[in-house]
């Protein structure tokens, strides 16, 4: 059982859908959405929220800084 639960909030309109956060995530939480944002990019979202541990790897690799990471100890 994980000792931490995390969550991310993606600024959908600023996300460019590069997918760097997907490869950075060690828990395979993030995927690109089928829907697009106002600029036509498939934005990143939490496809598997239970697996997130709040490590912030996605946040520090995101080139556009669109990801906010939250972490809570259980």
């Amino acid at each position: 059982m994980a000792k931490f639960r995390g969550a991310i909030v993606v600024d959908i309109e600023r996300c460019k859908g590069c997918g760097v956060c997907i490869t950075a995530c060690p828990c395979k939480v993030i995927e690109l959405a089928k829907e697009v944002n106002g600029k036509g990019y498939n934005y990143a979202f939490m496809a598997n929220p239970e697996a997130c541990i709040g490590c912030a790897s996605c946040g520090i690799t995101c080139p556009d800084g669109v990801i906010k990471v939250y972490k809570k100890a259980l």
């Binding site: 909030v9 709040g54 800084g65 669109v66 939250y70 809570k72």
Partner: peptide
């Protein structure tokens, strides 16, 4: 153990990374 919802995690005091 009570189930934790995303709303419980996404609180200002739990923020670990932002731009």
């Amino acid at each position: 153990m009570a189930e934790i919802t995303l709303q419980d995690i996404i609180q200002p005091e739990n923020l670990v990374y932002e731009k």
